[in-house]
């Protein structure tokens, strides 16, 4: 079994278990959902009916997925810590991690905390500098990178803010 397919089948084992838990949780929540007896509705039209079926089916599918990957040998050499270490050593993963930190900080922290134009400008500037200068095999000269990223971030921040505020009449966060 190749490294990649082994990793996929290990991921399947974990997600299979997650789906079993999720499916059973949905089933339980649907089972205990109010059945609106006081309104005199027919018992086969209770709000929990369909989610209950779906939860059950998801748990069943998760179980099949987990069993299949178990049979394929996913449990062998299963070390989440080692997988994580290997992942962090990989350049692609470092790029992904950087992108995640940037995008999540922008959407979840910067927007709403800073004025929209400033948040957008900062996010674009840092993103471009990081990926053009540091997380690349062919770094752009620092001065050029800073100037171009500065110009682009100012232009994008202003254009997006103005277009959405003035043309689409959106009250930006």
């Amino acid at each position: 079994m190749t490294n990649n397919s082994n990793r996929l089948s290990q991921a399947d084992l974990v997600t299979g278990i997650v789906f079993v838990v999720l499916g059973l949780t949905v089933f339980y929540l649907s089972w205990t959902m109010p059945r609106l007896e006081s309104r005199g509705i027919h018992p086969s039209t209770i709000p929990g009916l369909v989610p209950m079926i779906l939860g059950g089916l998801l748990a069943l599918s998760g179980l099949l997925l987990a069993l299949r990957s178990w049979r394929q040998g996913a449990s062998r050499h299963f070390s989440p810590l080692n997988s994580l270490r290997a992942m962090l050593a990989n350049e692609e993963s470092r790029r992904l991690l950087a992108m995640l930190i940037l995008t999540l900080s922008y959407a979840l922290i910067l927007v709403g905390w800073l004025p929209f134009w400033l948040a957008t400008g900062v996010y674009i500037f840092v993103s471009i500098v990081l990926f053009e200068r540091y997380l690349t095999a062919k770094p752009v000269p620092l001065a050029r990178c800073l100037i171009l990223a500065g110009i682009q971030s100012v232009v994008v921040a202003l254009v997006v803010t103005l277009v959405f505020q003035e043309i689409f009449l959106v009250r930006l966060p």
């Binding site: 959407a107 957008t120 471009i128 997006v160």
Partner: peptide
């Protein structure tokens, strides 16, 4: 792509927000 993708992401954020003008939709997008 390093110049383009951040701009697209900004559009994803502001576009999700614009429909009903609530941050909740941005969280849904994320």
């Amino acid at each position: 792509r390093q110049k383009l993708m951040p701009v697209i992401y900004v559009l994803c954020v502001v576009g999700s927000f614009a429909i009903s003008q609530q941050m909740f939709d941005v969280y849904v997008m994320v």
